[in-house]
């Protein structure tokens, strides 16, 4: 007897959808390997920008839409800590005790960031790809502080044969990368200086790749890397775990794992 296949709806996230679809492909692959039936219902935005801009009404409107979009799936998984943190904030957007609040609570309880989700349901990767590279992991703030995601991506990455994890110096490890949504365009000089501190800390580790779980941080950091003319690459943890780092020199599962 096998348990019925449980369903996962992918929360694509706007940035991944438009700017790096490969991250969604990788997330779908990981969820499929873990034995889940993956669906991608047509979806808009979770409302994080509105929530952070102080438009709670607008955020509540989008929250209701997302609650409807993701009704009926066992889980909702996203390759982003900050979008999932937004879903977890939904209950606070509605009057306590209201039907909306209950539905929001229900969605929040089913919503997980991809590494956190794999760690809970499929902590051993089925097809860990070989990656002969050294990587430094950037803990995005929403994941780290709102969702408690720190060990999960490291535990998953450490299953990749050939991969070496390098930690940032303590002072820089806990610091924000300076993205902050609209912050990065409103106060770009400050944002860039914070990014440079993070990047210099990554460079100091000598890592070949910067890996992270939130595309906002990664685009901001990679954009800054490109502007500074540095060869370091920023990749999403889902791409790394699925063996789908574009031009990353990853190999197939080498048989030493369980694949």
């Amino acid at each position: 007897m096998t348990a019925p296949t449980r369903s996962v709806a992918l929360l694509v996230t706007c940035l991944v959808d438009a700017l790096r679809p490969s991250v969604a492909e990788a997330t779908v692959a990981l969820l499929g390997q873990a034995g889940f039936a993956v669906a991608v219902p047509r979806q808009g935005c979770c409302g994080q920008p509105l929530l952070n801009a102080g438009d709670a009404d607008g955020a509540a409107d989008l929250a209701r839409r997302m609650i409807a979009v993701f009704a009926g799936y066992d889980f909702v998984v996203a390759p982003s800590g900050s979008c999932i943190a937004t879903l977890r904030e939904y209950p606070r957007l509605f009057a306590p005790g209201s039907a909306d609040a209950a539905a929001a609570q229900d969605l929040a309880a089913r919503a997980f960031e991809i590494c956190d989700f794999l760690d809970r349901h499929a902590a051993v990767l089925e097809n860990a790809p070989r990656w002969d590279a050294s990587v430094a992991y950037h803990d995005a703030c929403s994941g780290l502080r709102q969702l408690g995601i720190r060990n999960q991506p490291r535990a998953l990455l450490s299953q990749l044969p050939g991969l070496e994890l390098r930690e940032l110096a303590t002072a820089e490890a806990a610091e924000c990368c300076g993205f902050g949504g609209l912050f990065c365009v409103k106060y770009p000089a400050v944002s860039a200086q914070i990014a440079d501190r993070k990047l210099d800390a990554v460079l100091a580790t000598g890592a070949d790749f910067l890996v992270g779980g939130d595309l906002g941080c990664l685009l901001h950091l990679e954009g800054r890397l490109q502007r500074r003319g540095l060869p370091l690459r920023a990749v999403h943890v889902a791409e790394a775990l699925a063996g789908q780092v574009p031009g990353g020199g990853q190999g197939p599962a080498d048989g030493s794992g369980r694949g």
Partner: peptide, 10 residues
């Protein structure tokens, strides 16, 4: 607005 809302202050 001059905050990334990184949450470290809290």
């Amino acid at each position: 607005n001059a905050s990334t809302l990184c949450g470290r202050c809290e």
